[in-house]
Amino acid sequence: MSTPPRPHGLDPLGFIAREGSLAHVPGAFQPVVTAVRERLPDVFGARLDGAYLYGSIPRGTARVGRSDLDLFVVLREEPSDADRALVRALGAALDRDHPEIDGVGPLLYGRGRLLSAPERYDLGWFVACLCTPLLGDDLAALLPRYRPDSLLARETNGDLARLLPRWRERIAAAEDTEAARRPLVRFMSRHLVRTGFTLVMPRWNGWTSDLREMAEVCGAYYPERAAQLRTAAEYGHEPVGDPRVLRAYADDLGPWLAAEYARVHGVKTPRPEDES
């Protein structure tokens, strides 16, 4: 087994340190961040509980014209299909008006679900550790501190086996073009690398959101999969439209990772939407 990178990403007490800050947002992305802050209250009014940024922009690693804007919106009640349409429309408008970003990835949830016990080690952890407050009160104050342990690993990414059939459906339904396949490759590459990392996160005892480092950490514990993980990390940044990549994810790397995850950490607690 090769030596993984030195663990980091924890505070002095061993809890995952919150990553990202509005102070780290590169100057080129300040206009789109300002636009989000101004437009969101107009879209949802008093129903808006808060909003957060996550991903490369608040981490300060975004690339102009290449990085997307990752936005997490919280409403005071559970969102409707109409609310989801509104946030997608806002994302499309921001993407159209701001060439510094390459797309918008909006997430929309209700405050009650985010703070619920079943989501404490999934959505709750995500907000408390990976999201940067932009609007409203910071809900991290109502959530626990988090360590990189097996419980967190299980409840964040222990559902890959349930996701794989949906992935295969998406692959089959995708238009047979390179352009149509690239977003799928990027999404699945990132998901698999992050799942690989959280598989070994408790053993490494640290945290990172860097895809390449995630791949290196997991590959050090599973050298037979290291090359696949490194390639997936690259495709997470620069996706290709090769259908063979998607087949390999759905039929090889994904099933292996799901089985190993279940063996090591168990399976994520089902949510109501998983059982419907």
Rank of each mutant, 00 (worst) to 15 (best):
M1I: 14
P5A: 13
H8R: 12
L10W: 10
L10A: 09
L13D: 15
F15K: 03
A17I: 06
R18V: 09
V25H: 01
Q30D: 11
P31F: 09
V33H: 00
T34V: 05
V36D: 00
E38Y: 09
R39L: 08
G45P: 00
G45Q: 06
R47W: 09
R47S: 14
D49A: 13
D49M: 03
D49K: 02
A51W: 07
Y54T: 02
I57V: 13
I57K: 04
R59T: 08
G60F: 04
T61S: 14
A62L: 03
R63T: 11
V64D: 08
G65N: 10
L69M: 01
V73L: 02
R76A: 07
E78R: 14
A82P: 02
D83M: 04
L90Y: 06
A92I: 02
E100D: 15
D102R: 11
G103K: 05
G103Y: 09
V104H: 03
V104D: 02
P106A: 04
L108C: 00
Y109R: 11
G110F: 01
G110W: 03
R111W: 06
R113G: 14
L114H: 04
E119N: 15
E119P: 07
R120D: 09
D122V: 05
L123V: 12
L123G: 00
W125L: 00
F126I: 10
L130C: 13
C131G: 03
L134G: 07
G136L: 01
G136I: 02
D137H: 11
D137S: 12
A141M: 04
A141H: 12
L143N: 02
Y146F: 11
Y146I: 06
Y146T: 05
Y146V: 04
D149V: 07
S150T: 15
L151N: 03
T156V: 11
G158C: 13
R162Q: 06
R162N: 02
E169R: 13
E175W: 07
T177G: 08
T177P: 03
R182L: 08
P183F: 07
L184H: 01
V185K: 00
R186K: 15
R190F: 09
H191A: 08
H191L: 12
M201R: 12
M201Q: 12
N205P: 06
S209I: 04
D210G: 07
L211H: 03
L211S: 06
R212P: 00
E213G: 13
V217E: 03
A220G: 15
Y221P: 04
A226H: 13
A227S: 13
A227K: 09
R230M: 08
E234T: 13
E234A: 10
G241H: 12
A248F: 14
A248K: 14
Y249Q: 13
A250G: 08
A250H: 08
L253Y: 11
L257V: 07
L257N: 04
L257I: 11
L257R: 03
Y261F: 15
A262Y: 07
A262K: 10
A262N: 04
A262V: 15
H265Q: 13
H265W: 12
K268F: 07
T269D: 10
R271H: 05
P272I: 15
D274W: 05
E275R: 14
S276N: 14
